[in-house]
Amino acid sequence: MAAYDLYGVKDLSVSAASLSVEESLKLSFERRESSYHGGEYYFSGNKESEHFTLKNNVDPFDGEAVEHEFPEYPILLYVDMTDRAEEVKGKLAVEFHLLRHELLD
């Protein structure tokens, strides 16, 4: 079963958070720009399999939190289509807080 997880971090900028995730999970982020994602964001993987999106928790159109349930977390990390949710959680546990965990077939 693939997991779709959402993590939040409070005390890092999006660029500092990207370095932390890269080091913890041994992956490389690509820095991107998109108005849909609120400007600068980071992406790793491909949309057909496990992938990671790291971005600010700000909707560029209304200035509100993208994830309304978690406005206290300024940085969000989406871990999509992962088969290793527990491993990722263990490696990110120091700075990142698991906010949502969903399993899909």
Rank of each mutant, 00 (worst) to 15 (best):
M1D: 10
A2T: 05
D5N: 08
D5F: 00
Y7E: 06
G8H: 02
V9M: 11
K10Q: 14
K10Y: 07
V14A: 06
V14Y: 00
S15W: 02
A16F: 03
A17C: 07
A17P: 01
S18W: 01
S18Q: 07
L19D: 11
S20E: 15
V21G: 01
V21Q: 00
E23R: 13
E23C: 10
E23P: 02
L25T: 07
L25S: 08
L27E: 06
L27Y: 07
E30V: 13
E30A: 11
E30D: 12
R31D: 05
R32N: 10
E33N: 14
S34N: 10
S35A: 13
S35W: 13
Y36G: 03
H37Y: 14
G39F: 00
G39H: 01
G39E: 02
E40R: 08
E40A: 14
Y41R: 00
S44P: 04
G45M: 07
N46D: 15
N46K: 12
E48I: 09
E48G: 12
S49I: 03
S49H: 11
E50G: 01
E50H: 08
H51P: 01
F52M: 05
F52T: 00
T53L: 13
K55Y: 12
N56G: 10
V58E: 06
D59Q: 09
D59V: 05
F61Y: 11
E64W: 04
A65Y: 07
A65Q: 04
V66S: 06
E67C: 09
H68K: 14
F70T: 02
F70E: 03
P71V: 14
P74E: 05
L76C: 07
L77D: 05
Y78T: 02
Y78W: 11
V79T: 07
D80L: 15
D80N: 15
M81G: 01
M81A: 11
T82I: 04
D83M: 13
D83S: 12
A85G: 03
A85E: 08
A85V: 11
A85T: 04
G90V: 03
K91I: 04
K91R: 15
A93T: 11
V94L: 12
F96D: 00
H97S: 11
L98P: 00
L99S: 01
R100S: 13
H101S: 15
E102F: 04
E102N: 07
E102V: 10
L103W: 10
L103R: 09
L103V: 13
L103M: 13
L104H: 12
L104W: 08
D105R: 06
